[in-house]
Structure formats: structure tokens, C-alpha cells
Design a protein around this nucleic acid. Structure first.
Lengths: 247, 247
DNA sequence: CGCCACGTTGACAGTACTCAATTGGAGTGG
DNA sequence: CCACTCCAATTGAGTACTGTCAACGTGGCG
């Protein structure tokens, strides 16, 4: 755990002092959270936007039958909380020790956006990026194979939580978190990881540190239209099969 | 088909001449599309925002194995195309006859947003709503039961495509579209609808017009945290089971 | 009338979920 | 330092569900 928290501490993203959000930083409130601690509860009033600057957190919703659904993991640099809690059904909890969160009063942020078009534009950018990422995740969730889901998940984590080395993925979350994120049973997650290991696609440095031995194979499993956009492969596919596009 | 297209024509949302988007309407280009026609192809350049004012359309992505994933259905009044096509992996196709689309040049919209904070704010609203809706859909997709997915889908359509009567849902899309939207096989969609009918939860007015006989039962199947937010039931659940929240 | 796409139903197989037991690692107390 | 506990993670066996393949029914349209 010592190594992990050290690597996380190294990945601390300083609150930017320039850029379009600089004016906003004056009104930020910084708070540190312990693992499992709630940053945002389901029925809290929606008065803030958040930016995570260190650690990791999960945004989860409770389903009717008591099932937990993890809607998103957030990593240093990510903004969240704008449209996220419209229905007030989500709560956000810290995953790692020393999760550092900056909180911005919503009405102040809105006012600043009204005055400064650059801020407004930057907020739009962030929102649009969120939409694009959510849609890619939707495609990922739509895959029915466990192998596809887990492979795509590892690739996504490899891109987003870039704490460890080039081919090493640090997973701050538990297997249960992964299961609730991918909408599958914990046992299946575990089994799939084991299978990937036996295929020598990945290797375990520790339980939560995974070495990607064969990234092309992983991308193959995840399907070419994975979480990351790869236009060339999509082009190739589009030429190969024309689904039902009429003139 | 005559009845359907009539009911759709009645649901035509006129382009608003007032409100925050009024200034934008001067630059709108109106186009009508036939069923299956592409409004936006995968690799088109991203130069426009779109507003659908009549009919219905689907936004879909192609997966690596050739599978089609429908990321969203859009109905009259919906705006789309802002962050949607960041990865250029989505294409949008009309579903019904006389699908009417207004197209706004992106750079003009952005400029107007820069000048008028009300427009910028309105765009933010739309984007945030999209995010919230996408997250609710993510939870819906996460359900593993076919009954839950289809029930939640019917409730969502009942709320969004409010063309028909109070308890009647018009489904402009095919069973295949529904299957690709819910990430399940066509046959399972059909079987589940049949099961709901045999339970007397729904009834078929026609193949694409469904009468909801027992809405509470449908909501029960969909799980209380469905596509629509119901705080009270969530509260009840939260008090019943405390998943793993530490102090 | 026949074609075609859509929709439904049936039989079968495969995959993932459930229940259950075991292993492993971290933290605590003797 | 070791035993003990607790929880995460893994593995195993059996079941239920859904996907696949196939056939059939249906409605619109040339």
C-alpha cells in the first residue's frame, strides 16, 4: 500500500494557476478524504462543481434491487458534478487515501462564465468531453462478452490513471468496484482477469497493479472500436461491412 | 403507417421564435429526411449542431465485430451533435418519414454564445441535461435482466416520445433498433415484450404502439431507480441497506 | 401474387450468475 | 514474532438466463 499511495501522491495534479479556470480557483475549497468517505451524498443539494486533484473516486447510483452501479471513476484533473447530479441519484465516494477535492460554488462559477466567454467556452469543452466519454462508455457497456468488457476496462484505465509505468496499470478500486462499473459479477471479473493472465496478455505485479504484456491482443479482445477512438480501424470496418445504410 | 405518421406530424415541434435560442434560429438550415437516411455520417467534419423538430432519429456506433450500438434516440425538441461526435465514431440516421432537422453552424453558435451569456447558459443547460440522461441510461444498461431493461425502455419512451395518449407508447424504431439500444438480441426483446403482454402489463395496439395497462408493475420490473428519478424510493432503499459506506 | 423486411416463436448451446468453499494479505492482539 | 481475524480475491460446481440458429407468420409494396 505504501508504494501505491506514493505513486498516487506523485500523480497529484496541482490546481492550475493559469488557463481559463484561473479566476475560478480563487473560490475553490480544498478538502482531503479517506477511502470510502462520501464527497457527495445522494440527496445533497446541488451547489458545487468539483475537481479532483489527487487520488481517485467513484460516482455510484443505487438500483431498485439494492444493486450498486458505478457510473464513473474520476481521476486527478477530472471535473465532475455539473450535470452529474441532476437527478440527485448519484453519490461520489473517495477510493484511495488522501483523495484531494477542490469544490467551486456553482452560482459563482456560472456568474464568472456569464462575464468571461473564455470560461464559458472552457466549461462547454469539459461538458462536451464528458458527453463523448459517456457515449464511448455506453458502447463499452453494450458489449456482452466479459472478455471484451474487462479488456476495454483495462485499456481505459491504462489511458486515464497514468500513474504507473508505460505498460503497468494501477487499479485503485476493488474488484467489486470493477464489477459494478462493468455491470457483471465479481467472480466473472476475477475469472476473466485470470484468463487474461493465463493467456499471457497481462501479468499481476500485485493484486491491483497489472502489467500489460500484449497490448495489441488486449485491444483485439476489446474490439477495435474501444474506449479510445481509432478512426482507421473504424474506416476499415465501415468499408468491410455496410450495416444497413441506404443511399 | 398512416396513423403513425399522422400522430408524428401532430407532434411536430415548431422552431421556437423566442427564448434564448431565438438569435440562433436565423442561421438554421431546415432539412427533411426519409427513413434510414443519414443526417450525419461517421467521418463527416464536425461543423454543425442539430435540433430535431419532427420525427425521430437514432445515433449509432459500429463496434469492432460489426455489431451496431445505438447510443441514443432523439425526439422532437432534442438538441444533439455538440459533444456527441467528438470521436467521430457516431452517425445519426432518421427513423421515421418526414424527419425534420434544423442545422446550426457550430462556429456561429459558439460566437453567439460568446456574446450572449443567456445563450451560453442555455447551451450549458442542454449539455448538462444530456450528461444526466446519459448517466441514467448507463444505469439502465447496467441492469442485467432483460425484463428490467425492456421495462425501463418502455417507461423512458413513454416519457420522451409523448405523441400518443396517456397510456400509449409509440415506438417509431424497429425491434432491431431496440435490441441495439438495450444491448441484447432481437429475439430476447421480442420474447420479453411477449412476456409482458402475457402478464397483462402491456397490450399491443399495433406492433409499434404499446398500451401500458399496469404502469406500477412496469416500474416495479424496471427497478425503482429507473430512467426517471424517484427520490422517495431511493431514500427508502438507502435506509434499508447501507452498502459499504463507512463513517 | 410473390417478394422482402420485420416480427415472433421454438430448440439448443454457451456464457455468466449464484452459492459455496478456499486462498491470500493486511492489520490486530497475544 | 506468531496466531488470529477480517476482508478481498480467487476458484469450483450447478443453474438460469440469454444468444444463436432456424423456422414460421405477417404486413407492405412492387
Amino acid at each position: 500500500m505504501g508504494t501505491l499511495s506514493a505513486s498516487i501522491r506523485e500523480s497529484l495534479q496541482p490546481i492550475p494557476r493559469d488557463g481559463p479556470f484561473a479566476a475560478l480557483e480563487r473560490f475553490a475549497t480544498l478538502t482531503s478524504y479517506r477511502p470510502g468517505e462520501s464527497i457527495y451524498r445522494c440527496n445533497d443539494s446541488i451547489e458545487y462543481w468539483y475537481r479532483i486533484s489527487g487520488g481517485a473516486a467513484r460516482a455510484s447510483a443505487l438500483s431498485g434491487d439494492g444493486r450498486r452501479h458505478i457510473v464513473d471513476f474520476v481521476f486527478p484533473g477530472d471535473l465532475f458534478g455539473f450535470g452529474v447530479f441532476a437527478g440527485r441519484q448519484l453519490c461520489v465516494e473517495a477510493i484511495t487515501a488522501d483523495t484531494l477535492i477542490a469544490r467551486y460554488p456553482r452560482h459563482i462559477a456560472e456568474s464568472l462564465a456569464d462575464c468571461d466567454p473564455r470560461i464559458a467556452r472552457a466549461i462547454r469543452e469539459v461538458a462536451f468531453d464528458s458527453i463523448a466519454r459517456l457515449q464511448r462508455r455506453m458502447v463499452m457497456l453494450g458489449r456482452n462478452s466479459a472478455l471484451e468488457k474487462v479488456s476495454a476496462f483495462l485499456l481505459e484505465m491504462s489511458d486515464r490513471s497514468n500513474a504507473c509505468g508505460p505498460h503497468v496499470v494501477c487499479l485503485p478500486m476493488s474488484r467489486y468496484d470493477i464489477a459494478d462499473y462493468l455491470a457483471m459479477a465479481v467472480e466473472t471479473v476475477s475469472r476473466t482477469l485470470t484468463e487474461l493472465r493465463s493467456r499471457h496478455t497481462i501479468a499481476f505485479r500485485s493484486v491491483r497493479q497489472i502489467h500489460i504484456c500484449d497490448r495489441p491482443a488486449l485491444e483485439e479482445f476489446a474490439g477495435s472500436l474501444g474506449v479510445r477512438g481509432r478512426s482507421e480501424s473504424v474506416d476499415r470496418l465501415r468499408s468491410q461491412l455496410q450495416p444497413e445504410a441506404p443511399g
